[in-house]
Design a protein around this nucleic acid. Structure first.
Length: 162
DNA sequence: GCCAACGTTGGC
DNA sequence: GCCAACGTTGGC
């Protein structure tokens, strides 16, 4: 893979009962929009910082096992989350309208489902991941920045080291 | 602008 | 099921 100095890395959390990596694998072109983020800090990252080509660690929360289950790639940068003004959607927000959208989303495409998910317990005892946001007590952000070093370590744990 | 009450997230 | 952490709401 050619080096991409500007590439950033992220971790996207999802409850697999709601949307799992298998759901993503079943989407047309294994691509979907990442809707339903209703937290301003996460929204700001989706809207302002996440770019096409960025790498995504797909994490299953509230699940057994808790684990990073694969990789995705950002294929469309931030744009309005239209599910917000759909009253039938899972996360309606009547304050958001097509004229004045509040929430943002990006599109991601599946890259890999790990044959062996990288479990949270493994992450927790891996040197170099001590500061990983996911592992911080009380960290609830559903969109988290990941450093290039953390990305490298996680891929290595998944058997996909460079 | 403060802050108590409340709701949600999410690991354990 | 418990509960700590955190965000939001709303009275004042």
């Amino acid at each position: 893979m050619p080096s991409q100095p500007d590439r950033r890395f992220w971790l996207f959390k999802s409850e697999p009962e709601v949307f799992s990596i298998d759901h993503l694998a079943g989407c047309p072109s294994q691509t979907t929009f990442w809707d339903g983020v209703r937290n301003y800090q996460a929204r700001n990252m989706l809207r302002d910082e996440v770019r096409v080509g960025d790498g995504v660690l797909f994490y299953h929360s509230n699940a057994e096992p808790l684990a990073i289950v694969g990789l995705a790639r950002v294929v469309r940068a931030g744009y309005p989350d239209h599910t917000a003004w759909d009253p039938e959607s899972a996360h309606p927000d009547p304050k958001s309208t097509p004229e004045k959208p509040i929430w943002s989303m990006v599109d991601i495409a599946l890259e890999t489902r790990f044959a062996q998910p990288v479990e949270r317990t493994t992450l927790a005892r891996t040197k170099g991941l001590e500061k990983m946001l996911l592992l911080q007590r009380g960290s609830r952000l559903s969109i988290q920045p990941v450093t290039s070093e953390e990305w490298r370590i996680v891929l290595k744990l998944a058997g996909r080291g460079a």
